[in-house]
Amino acid sequence: MIDAPIETWYTWLGIAAVSVLALGTAVGIPSGPTPDANGVADTIDRVAADEFPATAEHGIAADRIRLSPTRVSLRGPGGSTTAPIRFGPVTPATNAESDDRLRRVLHGEPPQRVFDSPDALDRAATVSRGRYDRNPRWERAPNRLRVRSIHWEGLRVTLVG
Rank of each mutant, 00 (worst) to 15 (best):
A83I: 07
D36A: 02
D3R: 11
A48H: 02
V105M: 06
I65T: 05
D3P: 10
P136Y: 00
R113Q: 15
L145S: 01
A41P: 00
R104Q: 15
P110K: 13
G28Y: 03
A141G: 03
T25K: 05
A125D: 02
P33H: 10
A26I: 11
H58W: 01
L13N: 08
G28C: 04
S73Q: 07
A48D: 02
I65P: 00
V160F: 05
W9H: 11
N135I: 09
R104H: 13
T126D: 13
W138I: 07
Y10L: 07
R66E: 05
P77E: 15
E97M: 07
A62H: 04
S31T: 14
A37C: 09
L102A: 03
A56G: 06
R123D: 15
V105G: 00
A124L: 09
S128V: 05
G39R: 02
R75K: 12
V90D: 02
S19I: 03
G39M: 01
A17M: 15
R71A: 13
R103P: 09
V47H: 03
S98H: 03
G78T: 11
S19C: 07
D36F: 02
G32K: 09
I15S: 13
A54T: 08
P111W: 03
R131N: 09
P111L: 13
S73K: 02
V18Y: 00
R129W: 07
T158R: 08
I15H: 08
A83P: 04
I15V: 15
R144G: 00
P136K: 05
S128C: 05
P77C: 04
A4E: 13
T11H: 11
V160D: 00
D45G: 02
P35A: 05
P92Q: 07
A54C: 04
G59D: 14
H151S: 12
S98E: 03
G130H: 11
E139A: 06
T43C: 11
A96L: 12
L155M: 06
D3G: 09
P84L: 11
H58V: 06
F115R: 12
V47W: 01
H107M: 12
L13P: 06
G39F: 00
A93D: 04
R131G: 04
T82C: 02
S128D: 04
A16G: 10
E7S: 14
D99Q: 08
R148H: 08
A41H: 00
L145R: 02
E7Y: 09
I85L: 06
R131Q: 13
G32H: 10
R123Q: 15
G78A: 13
G76Y: 08
R103W: 10
E109C: 12
I60E: 00
E97K: 08
F87R: 08
R146E: 13
L106F: 12
I44C: 03
G28H: 06
V114T: 15
A93V: 05
A62P: 06
V72Y: 01
A16K: 00
F115C: 11
E139G: 05
E109M: 14
A22N: 01
P89K: 12
E51V: 08
W12K: 15
N38L: 15
D133E: 15
T8V: 14
